[in-house]
Amino acid sequence: MTKVGVWWDVVRISGQLGLAALQLLRQRLECPIGPVAVDPGGSDAPRLYFFVPPGTADHWDAFGTTALGPDFFVVVPDAACVQPPGPHWAVPPDAGRVLTCPRALREAVTAAMQLP
């Protein structure tokens, strides 16, 4: 477990909405994607955790998502764990990679909600 809100906040998006938002972000070459962890378990599986700049949770309001800031903890997979079973990275952390842009993530979530 790692405390959220120090180095980054997290936006949790469950199920098909999270998968669709990730796919849309991957199609936007101008916006790099930061680390994205996947928790494949639970009733609303999978749950994707998008790592965003600290403070994002204070202003986050995208429908169908949950922003986690200070006072929350998340399970962070080992950096080499990129496949199931268990928690793993859909987009692994990279020392040179930035965090996901909140504006781009919000746009991707909004667009994903419009998909059939």
Rank of each mutant, 00 (worst) to 15 (best):
F63M: 02
L29Q: 12
T100S: 09
T100W: 07
P116K: 13
L99R: 11
P46E: 03
L115N: 15
V10M: 06
R97I: 01
A37S: 12
L48M: 08
A104D: 15
A112S: 11
A108F: 01
P92S: 05
V82A: 08
Q16H: 02
A21Y: 13
V38T: 04
T100V: 07
W7E: 11
V36S: 11
G41V: 00
E30T: 14
G18A: 01
M113F: 06
L29G: 11
D94G: 11
R47T: 03
A57M: 00
I13K: 12
D9K: 10
P77Y: 02
R12Q: 12
V82I: 12
C31G: 00
F50L: 09
L29E: 14
T56Y: 13
R26G: 10
P116V: 09
P46N: 06
D44S: 06
L24E: 15
G96L: 08
P54E: 02
P102S: 03
P93N: 02
A111F: 04
A57Y: 02
A67G: 14
K3M: 13
V4H: 05
F50Y: 06
V11E: 07
V75G: 00
V10Q: 08
F50H: 14
A57Q: 02
V91L: 03
V10N: 10
V6H: 11
V38I: 04
F73M: 12
R28T: 02
P85D: 01
G42F: 03
P54V: 01
A79W: 10
P35Y: 09
F63W: 00
P85K: 01
V11H: 11
V91Q: 09
I33G: 07
V10T: 14
A90W: 05
L48T: 10
T66S: 07
F51P: 00
V75W: 08
E30K: 15
C101F: 07
G15H: 06
A45E: 10
F51M: 08
Q23C: 02
A79H: 12
G86D: 03
Q23M: 08
S14W: 01
G64W: 08
V6P: 03
P70M: 04
V38K: 04
V4F: 04
R28V: 02
L29M: 07
R103M: 09
R12A: 05
T66K: 10
L22G: 09
A67V: 01
P46A: 04
F50C: 05
V74C: 07
G86I: 03
R103Q: 15
V91T: 04
G55H: 01
V4G: 00
G55E: 02
L115M: 15
L29P: 11
I13M: 12
G5A: 05
V75I: 05
D94E: 07
A80S: 15
L24N: 08
R97F: 00
P87W: 03
C101P: 12
C81S: 13
G42Q: 06
L48H: 14
R103D: 15
V75F: 09
L105V: 10
V76T: 10
P32W: 12
A90E: 12
F50K: 06
